[in-house]
Every structure is written in structure tokens, then in C-alpha cells.
Amino acid sequence: MNGRERILARIREALRVPAPRPGSHGHGHHDVPAPSPQAGRIPLRPVQQARAWLPPGGDTPEEQLGRFAAASADLKTDFHLLADEAAARAKLSGIASAEGWKQIATHRAALTDAVVPSLGIPSRNTDGGYDPEDLERCDAGITTCDVLVAQTGTLVVNSRTTGGRALSVLPPHHVVLARRDQLVGDLTDAFQRIRELHGEGWPSMISLVTGPSRTGDIERILVLGAHGPKKLTVLMW
């Protein structure tokens, strides 16, 4: 018997005696309905039901934008809602000159192709592979994203269509270019969108990014840029 079979056999042996249902130990809150009795299983609740308990994400697009902006401010994400592509180009070039970017990295996508070349800054694409030393020396990594989440101020990148695993986390400044219709209300919506985009063949990495890299490991004092980017900018139009 190999390791897998040995452990699975131990698990099956252990599970022969059923365990009491959660909440059956008597200190629970009585307004929570007990799970319906069904032999051996608790049916998983529909995922949409999570909405009834979790922090709200906003019902209308305006409300969602408001929540995303508020969450971004809280997280110290630099969020800009812009009129159009031209405004995005202007904004990005303003950031580039303010920070004195000398080299940047990006990937091929409709949004990056429309904005990044106009900067006139030497830029490398991570598509198809790159030298990590080079990427580490870049001043910014500019990517697109799959979806943005109003509830938490989160954006989702992946390893296949947003430039790989490292582009969004190795350079000191991560800039995300996004369209307004990529914003959804809450995490449940976001996972649905992720499934629509990638369910047929998962990218090897899907990352929910919420704010710039942070740590509170020294006296619980917030410091940005622990290992990942010190700055996270979201340009949306």
C-alpha cells in the first residue's frame, strides 16, 4: 500500500463514527437555523447565500464604484477613475515622470498596448519568459486584471493573461489598467467571473491582490512594501 492508500484508509476508518453537527454543542446562537438533518451530509449552501452574511459590495455600479474607492483609500491603493483612454495615458505619464521611471515591464493585452507605448519609456514584455534580474530592476510593472471587487478593494491577476506570476509583485510599483465593466460587487461575483474566464483551463496562478504589499510584524505598525510593491495604482476608465 502506498502513502496515498495508507492515509485514505486511515481516514475512512476514522470516519466510520459520525461526528455531531456544528452548533449542536449547546452554546450556539439560537437565531441561527440548525442544518437540515440528512444522513451523513450537510448539503453545501448555495454560494450566493454568502451575500446575506458578508460585508456588502453595493447593488448598483455607482455604489460599487463608491465602495471600491473607499476600500482603496483605506488600503492606500492609489485609485483613479478616468474619463477615457487618453486620460489614462496622461495620468500614467504623469506618474512616470513624477517617479522618474527609467525602465518598466508589462505584458501584451489590449489595455496595455493602448497605454504603455505612449510613455516612451524602455519597456520589456514578460510574455514568453524574462530574466528575473531584469524584472527586479524595473521601476514599475504594468498589468491588466481579470476582475475588481468593490466589497474589499481587491483586484485579480493571473499567470496566463496578466503577465505571469512575478510581474505584479516583483517591481516596486504595480500599476493596474482596468475597464469599468470589470468591477463587480463582491467576492461571490468575482469567483463567478473567474470561473467564466478560466473555468475551461485554469492558469497555474490566480491571485487576489488587495492593496500594496504590507506588514505589521513590527509592533503591529503598518508598513507598506514588505516584499511586494510599495505602491499599487489602479487606473480605471
Binding site: T152, W202, P203, M205, V209, T210
Partner: peptide, 13 residues
């Protein structure tokens, strides 16, 4: 509200 990075890995490159 949510941790900074929550990352799903489904395979090697």
C-alpha cells in the same frame, strides 16, 4: 477585511 494576497495555485508553470 481581506488579507493582502490570496493566491490560488493549480499547477506548475
Amino acid at each position: 477585511a481581506i488579507t493582502g494576497y490570496n493566491t490560488l495555485y493549480s499547477g506548475p508553470r
